[in-house]
């Protein structure tokens, strides 16, 4: 419960920081890695719902064409986080998803950023996607320059917390 409250506060502050500096921090550059980090930190159903709700609140506050990120990012997170049937440990993940654990968080962040930029495209832009590709890539680059290092730092922090026993590995969900 304490973890949930703390993660909620962290996400709220991050959203406020992003809103306060729209010129320096592009939409989602800080919030998406932090939300993904909270997902990985909590690794529970309530954490998943809290993070999804925060993504949804962010979309309501700053709407784009489609809320693809709150729709699909929790599903992608489940693929990364759900415990496998063979092993009860969260840290191993599913056997077919052979991605090293420290890379999972940056990859989920990358997927969330891509979903957000795809969701911000209007139907007209979707129709002319090849022509818009350079603009989309440019926007992605601007967000990822901040988002990926932040998610790497969070991933490292989570790993360290695991190593030092500062975080519960199992949760009741």
């Amino acid at each position: 419960m304490k973890g949930l409250f703390l993660c909620g506060c962290v996400m709220w502050v991050t959203l406020a920081v992003e809103l306060a500096n729209p010129s320096r921090l592009p939409h989602g550059s800080l919030l998406l890695p932090v939300i993904c980090g909270c997902l990985f930190w909590l690794r529970s159903t309530t954490g998943l719902i809290l993070s999804g709700t925060m993504l949804l609140l962010d979309w309501i506050a700053r709407p784009s064409f489609l809320p693809l990120c709150p729709m699909l990012a929790p599903m992608l997170a489940v693929i990364c986080l759900a415990p496998s049937t063979r092993s009860d440990e969260y840290s191993t993940g599913r056997s077919w998803l052979r991605v090293p654990a420290p890379l999972q968080l940056p990859l989920l962040t990358l997927a969330a950023v891509i979903l957000q930029s795809l969701g911000s495209l209007s139907p007209e832009q979707w129709l002319s996607l090849p022509a818009q590709a350079s603009t989309v890539l440019e926007n992605l680059k601007v967000v990822l320059v901040i988002a990926l290092p932040v998610s790497a730092v969070i991933s490292l922090t989570i790993r360290m917390a695991d190593e030092f026993g500062m975080r519960r590995v199992f949760s009741q969900g």
């Binding site: 719902i49 709700t53 979309w59 709150p70 729709m71 929790p74 489940v78 415990p83 049937t85 969900g173």
Partner: peptide
């Protein structure tokens, strides 16, 4: 299995809520 089911249920719920 139970936790995974709950997680998928939560994610699907978020999808429809969105």
């Amino acid at each position: 299995d139970q936790i995974r089911q709950r997680m998928w249920l939560g994610a699907t719920g978020m999808f429809f809520l969105s």
